[in-house]
Amino acid sequence: QETRNAIYSGPFVTAARKEFSNKEDSRLQKWGCYIHGSANRQEILETALKWVSRNNIEEYMQEHRLDDNINELRMYFNDVISWIEQTFDDVYPKMCGLDWGELYERFHNNPYDHVDVSRKVAELYNDDRVKDTKNVFEYVLGGCKDTKLLNVRVFDDITKRRVYDRQTKDAKEKGVSNCPLCAIGHDANKEKIWKLSEMDADHVKAWSKGGPTDESNCQMLCKTHNRAKGNR
């Protein structure tokens, strides 16, 4: 950011540095909950510019180089910080460094119950099946739909093999497909026996709806049906 400040030096940069690069500013502790870096290395300013410019910092600085105020930059930054604080009751370590500007753009118009949001975040943080807790916030803001964000612990190969063998044995005895959804269909796959490599492990009751990741809640589906089932 120091290089950019030199290239686009002028009243805008002077005012921006005064606002975001003062290491004695009492607001730094609050900002530090959500932003990596320090004021004296211009990293807070860089983040503020990234947010307001939608990642087009150079273009934004060129456009505003001769401005004698930073009203838009200050207002947008404060709006993002206020939105985070109003949406989440607690501060979590993995909040720091997320692209809050991008999340703000996507979600700030959605109505949220901060109590409900914080409850869901706490539950996911304490769920040992969730591998990527840094994505918990985006997952909750998005309505708890995209479980791929969380990298949820999946069924292991031994479990998948056992379930596959059991389903296949039962299917052959009944003369139907070993994919339960194919078996109740009306197309050519109604009696198809899929190979293990052609199937995916699926939560019978979706993980996001409380379904456990254990053998009792596992079924093997053909890849087409597993993709179609999604998070239902």
Rank of each mutant, 00 (worst) to 15 (best):
Gln1Arg: 11
Gln1Asp: 14
Gln1Ser: 15
Asn5Ala: 06
Ser9Cys: 04
Ser9Asp: 13
Gly10Lys: 00
Phe12Ile: 00
Val13Arg: 10
Thr14Arg: 12
Thr14Ile: 05
Ala15Thr: 05
Arg17Pro: 09
Glu19Lys: 15
Glu19Val: 03
Lys23Phe: 10
Lys23Thr: 08
Glu24His: 11
Arg27Gln: 14
Gly32Met: 02
Gly32Asn: 15
Cys33Glu: 14
Cys33His: 13
Ala39Gly: 03
Arg41Phe: 04
Ile44Lys: 11
Glu46Asp: 13
Glu46Thr: 10
Glu46Ser: 11
Lys50Phe: 07
Trp51Leu: 04
Trp51Val: 00
Ser53Glu: 11
Arg54Val: 00
Asn55Ala: 14
Glu58Met: 07
Glu58Tyr: 03
Tyr60Glu: 12
Tyr60Lys: 01
Tyr60Asn: 01
Met61Cys: 07
Glu63Trp: 01
Leu66Met: 14
Asp67Asn: 14
Asp67Tyr: 05
Asp68Met: 09
Asn69Gln: 14
Asn69Ala: 09
Asn69Arg: 11
Asn69Ser: 11
Asn69Trp: 02
Ile70Leu: 03
Asn71Thr: 13
Glu72Ile: 05
Arg74Gln: 14
Phe77His: 08
Asn78Gln: 13
Asp79Trp: 01
Asp79Glu: 10
Val80Trp: 03
Val80Gly: 07
Phe88Cys: 02
Asp90Ser: 12
Asp90Asn: 13
Val91Ile: 10
Lys94Asn: 12
Cys96Gly: 02
Trp100His: 00
Phe107Leu: 09
Phe107Asn: 06
Asn109Cys: 03
Asn109Phe: 12
Asn109Trp: 13
Tyr112Ile: 03
Arg119Gln: 11
Arg119Met: 13
Lys120Tyr: 07
Val121Ala: 03
Val121Asp: 10
Ala122Ser: 15
Leu124Asn: 06
Tyr125Asp: 05
Tyr125Asn: 10
Asp128Asn: 15
Asp128Glu: 13
Val130Met: 07
Asp132Lys: 14
Thr133Asn: 15
Thr133Tyr: 05
Lys134Tyr: 07
Val136Leu: 10
Val136Asn: 14
Leu141Ala: 04
Gly143Tyr: 08
Cys144Ile: 00
Cys144Val: 00
Cys144Tyr: 05
Lys145His: 04
Asp146Tyr: 02
Thr147Met: 08
Leu149Met: 14
Arg153Lys: 13
Phe155His: 15
Asp156Gln: 08
Ile158Leu: 12
Ile158Gly: 03
Thr159Leu: 12
Thr159Ile: 08
Lys160Ser: 08
Arg161Val: 04
Arg161Asp: 04
Arg162Cys: 04
Tyr164Ala: 05
Asp165Ile: 09
Lys169Val: 11
Asp170Ser: 13
Gly175Glu: 02
Val176Thr: 10
Val176Tyr: 00
Ser177Gly: 04
Ser177Glu: 07
Cys182Gln: 06
His186Pro: 02
Glu191Cys: 12
Ile193Pro: 02
Trp194Asp: 01
Met199Ile: 07
Asp200His: 13
Asp200Tyr: 02
Asp202Met: 01
Lys205Thr: 12
Ser208Lys: 05
Ser208Asn: 14
Gly211Lys: 05
Gly211His: 03
Pro212Ala: 04
Thr213Tyr: 06
Glu215Val: 00
Ser216Met: 08
Asn217Ile: 01
Lys223Cys: 08
Thr224Met: 09
His225Val: 10
Asn226Thr: 02
Asn226Ala: 07
Arg227Pro: 00
Arg227Met: 13
Asn231Asp: 14
Arg232Cys: 05
